[in-house]
């Protein structure tokens, strides 16, 4: 596993709030500000500009809230596991109706990197990892580690291709990146993940 300090995150792009992150992230104004700041920061890193469709972003946010509400477990002992899963659902919604578009190629990204291959997907994934990392630290004092798969372009290629046909695949990809083994039959169903872990 890789330590999060090796991963190019932008903690400064997380807006300050008087509320816990788990609450703030479920407010559209905070969510939007966080997303816009991450798009700007990663655009700077990659040497491109990201246009953000704010109407799409709001739709993504609403669908994410609905998905969380639908899948939220009643059992409090599953809270931490669902916390991790919520980030996967966020990536699913972002990729399903991508609110980002890069204007031009990622000129500063390494040629065979995920960022060069798919700047929008890379930025959305890093946004989800970033929010997840900050929230886990705040809520559970837990350090997040990432799987070496994050550096493997084959995983990113598979992610992009499969997510086109099945948006749920994005949720599986994020679980993989965060070191969990997704249930690839139903990667965006929380209960399916629990059943698999129980085996």
């Amino acid at each position: 596993m890789r330590r999060m300090s090796d991963v190019p995150l932008h903690p400064e792009a997380i807006p300050s709030s008087n509320e816990p992150l788990r609450i703030a992230v479920r407010r559209l104004r905070w969510f939007k500000q966080a997303f816009l700041r991450h798009a700007e920061a990663y655009g700077r890193d990659l040497g491109c500009t990201f246009d953000v469709d704010e109407a799409k972003l709001a739709s993504v946010f609403v669908r994410w809230l609905e998905a969380i509400e639908r899948q939220k477990p009643a059992d409090k002992s599953q809270r931490r596991a669902f916390f991790e899963f919520a980030a996967a659902l966020m990536l699913r919604e972002l990729v399903a109706d991508m609110p980002l578009s890069a204007t031009g190629p990622a000129a500063l990204a390494k040629p065979d990197s995920a960022a060069a291959f798919w700047p929008e997907g890379y930025c959305c994934t890093m946004f989800c990892v970033s929010i997840h990392t900050a929230a886990m630290a705040q809520e559970f004092h837990a350090a997040t580690e990432v799987d070496p798969a994050i550096d493997d372009l084959r995983h990113w290629w598979s992610f992009r291709e499969n997510a086109r046909g099945d948006p749920g695949f994005s949720a599986g990809f994020l679980q993989l990146i965060l070191g969990n083994q997704p249930n690839w039959m139903m990667p965006d169903v929380f209960r399916a993940r629990l059943v698999q872990e129980a085996r």
Binding site: L28, A55, L57, S59, V62
Partner: peptide, 17 residues
């Protein structure tokens, strides 16, 4: 301070819904 941003967010939510 959040007043205007909140109004924009409410508008965006209403459009999404």
């Amino acid at each position: 301070e959040e007043n205007e941003e909140a109004l924009h967010a409410a508008a965006d939510l209403a459009v999404a819904l």
